[in-house]
Design a protein around this nucleic acid. Structure first.
Lengths: 203, 203
DNA sequence: AATCTGAGTTGACATTGTTCATTTACAGTG
DNA sequence: CACTGTAAATGAACAATGTCAACTCAGATT
C-alpha cells in the first residue's frame, strides 16, 4: 500500500539568489504528502525531502524544524480554508442566513475531503506565540472575522455577534474533528446538522 | 526542564499467574506521562517502560502496539471524563438546564486541567473499529447517552434531542480542542460560552 | 587568478517503535 | 531435594526518524 520509492524529483541546485524557490518546493511536497497520508505525524522530514528531490538537511536551510515547516503548511491551508468559506458565503451573496449555512458546508467539506490538511491546522501550538505583536493579522483570524460579519448581518444583537460566531465555529470544528477521529459516530446528516446549528444559534 | 532519569521504579517480576498486573502498571505509567507532557506524540514506549521499571519489550506482552496502549489509556480517560460529567450533572440533581451547564463545565475543566489526557481521547482512529459488534457499549457512548437524556428532560421535542445533544457535545469539544491548539484565541469567558450555548441550543 | 558565499550534501548521532531469540525464576511433580 | 515446564521478562538488533556539524561545489566579486 505504501509508495515504493518513486517519489523523488530530479532537480538541480537553484541559481544564486533564487534559493527561496526551494522553500516553495518543500511546502508543495509537504502539502502533497499530507494530502496523501491524512496522518500528519506520519509525514516525515525525510519523506518530504525525498519528494522534493533534495537531501533531508536542505530543509533546515529554510525551516527551523519539522514543526515550523508544518506550521508554514498549516498557514497555507488556513488561507485555503478561508478562501473556500468566503467563496461559498460572503462572496456568493444571498441571504445572510444562507451564507452562514454555505460557509458551514464549505468548512465541513474541506475537513472531509482533505483530512490531512485539516488535521495539520489544529495540531497543538499552532499560534506563532500569541504574544504582543498585534501587527500580523494572525492567520485564520480574518476568515473568522468574516464569519462574524455574516452573523452580524443576520440581525443578532451586536453584543452577541462575536460570541455566537465562536459558538458556530466551535461546533463546526468539533464535528469535523470528531468525525475524523471517530468515523463510526452516528452523526446527524450534514445538512441537518448545519440547519439545526444555524437555526438555534441565530435565536 | 526534562526529567534526568529519576523515573524508574524498582520492581521485581510478578509471581506466576499475576502477569496481568504489569498491564495495569503500564497503563498507570502511561497515564502519568501523558499527564505530565500534554503532547501525546512525545510520550514514548521506552519512556513508559522506564517509568514502569520494566524493559520496553515487556509492553508487547500486554499491548499489540504503542497505538493500542494509547487506545487503552484513552478508554480509561473517557470513563473518567464521563464520571466527572455525570457527577456534575445527572447525579447532582437540580434543574435539567443547570445540569447541562454543569456537565459542560465539567467537560471543559477536564480538558483544561488534563490536556494530555484530553488530547489522547481524540487522536485519530479512536473507535476500536466501529464495525458490526454492537454488544460492547462503545466507551464514551454511554456518557453521551446520558447527556442526551438531560437534553430530553429539558423539554425539547423528542425528535431533536439526539441531534441537539450532538451539537452541544461538538461545541464543547470544539472549544476544548481549539483552546488547547490556539491558546491565544480570544474566547468568551467559559461561563458566558456555556450559558450562551445552552440557552441557544435549548430553543 | 584568488576569494567569498549561497545552495546543498555527507555522514553521523541519539532516539524511536518493534521483532526475535534468549534468559530468569517460580510452581508443581517425581 | 532435584527436575522441568512455562510464565514473565530481558537484550541485542533493525530500520526509520529528527537534527547537527562539517563538508563540497559552483557562480559572483574582487
Amino acid at each position: 500500500m505504501n509508495n515504493v520509492n518513486s517519489d523523488l524529483k530530479i532537480r538541480g541546485r537553484n541559481p544564486r539568489g533564487e534559493g527561496e524557490k526551494l522553500r516553495a518546493t518543500l511546502l508543495e511536497a509537504a502539502t502533497e504528502l499530507l494530502a496523501e497520508s491524512e496522518h500528519p505525524e506520519r509525514v516525515s522530514v525525510r519523506g518530504i525531502a525525498r519528494r522534493a528531490g533534495v537531501s533531508p538537511t536542505a530543509i533546515y536551510l529554510h525551516f527551523e524544524s519539522r514543526e515550523q515547516l508544518f506550521r508554514a503548511v498549516s498557514e497555507e491551508c488556513f488561507a485555503e480554508l478561508g478562501a473556500a468559506m468566503c467563496a461559498a458565503g460572503p462572496d456568493a451573496g444571498g441571504e445572510p442566513r444562507d451564507q452562514l449555512a454555505a460557509m458551514g458546508h464549505a468548512y465541513l467539506r474541506f475537513a472531509r475531503e482533505r483530512p490531512g490538511h485539516y488535521a495539520v491546522l489544529f495540531q497543538r501550538q499552532i499560534t506563532p506565540e500569541a504574544d504582543e505583536d498585534d501587527d500580523e493579522p494572525k492567520v485564520g483570524m480574518d476568515v473568522f472575522e468574516s464569519l462574524v460579519g455574516v452573523v452580524r448581518r443576520c440581525g443578532v444583537p451586536e453584543a452577541d455577534a462575536f460570541d455566537l460566531g465562536v459558538v458556530l465555529w466551535m461546533a463546526l470544528h468539533g464535528r469535523a474533528a470528531v468525525a475524523s477521529a471517530m468515523p463510526g459516530f452516528p452523526f446527524p446528516d450534514e445538512d441537518r446538522y448545519i440547519e439545526l446549528l444555524v437555526d438555534r444559534v441565530l435565536a
